[in-house]
Amino acid sequence: MANPGSGRKGNVVRPSVFRGKHRDDAPKPILVMEEVYKYFRRDVPTLRNVNLTVERGEFVFVTGPSGSGKSTLLQLVYRQHTVDSGRILFSGRDVSRLTDSSIPFLRRNLGIVFQDFKVVPHWTVYENVAVSLEILGTNARLARSRVAEALERVGLAGRGNERTETLSGGEQQRVAIARAIVTEPALLLADEPTGNLDPQLAIDILTLFEEIHEAGTTVLFATHDHSLLATSPHRLVVIDDGRLIEASQGLRAWSARMQSLGASHAS
């Protein structure tokens, strides 16, 4: 069935329901952006002609200076904002054409992690993680075991009963990550998830994302922290002046490119 609403009764809405009648085709990229433009101000696009394809199982860094549009790019995927032109296909389905009432069903296939954690401070760790499953209508018994499993994956096994606000920043971010992965989403979006953490904790969190990626989840990770990029072998795309540039040879190639771009700007 093409209607994502049909997943309401299931435990998890699998992205296959977004694939609609193309079910039998070869697996599509999980995310495709085609000629995407986003304007917050007239005449000055925040994103211009962005093209990006993310295959299933990839780990992709999105970087660029503060204010370059990294958050905006991710927000277009989870429909916090809508593109002004172009298309964004998630599992082959154009998310910019979803009606408002279908947006929840898109988000159930995504895990999203934020810089400011976005956990509910007075809830317990368990409640903060279980909320994703509650939304899906997962029964309580299954939810308990899935939450326990997710907490173990993020290194918080057995801490479900603690009030979330009593945890350290790094631990709260782990709670948020557990909430994002407990539904086993097809795509994990991370918007500067290490931005509020000190460097050692940042590396720990990145390592956690890499473990999650190795277990099969596709990750789109936005950060402007170059120290994280330097140590990682993953694919890197850069937003510069609203344009998306592939830095296929990793950070070094990208820096070289940046320098040459700077030179060509100067000339």
């Binding site: 989870y78 009432s101 929840p104 069903f105 898109l106 988000r107 159930r108 995504l110 999203i112 976005k118 956990v119 509910v120 401070p121 809830w123 903060n128 909320v131 994703s132 939304i135 899906l136 909430r179």
Partner: peptide, 16 residues
């Protein structure tokens, strides 16, 4: 507010 925001980002419908 925070709770509502979290629910929406996790895919809760308006009625939920």
């Amino acid at each position: 507010r925070r709770e509502i925001e979290v629910l929406k980002l996790c895919g809760a419908t308006d009625s939920f």
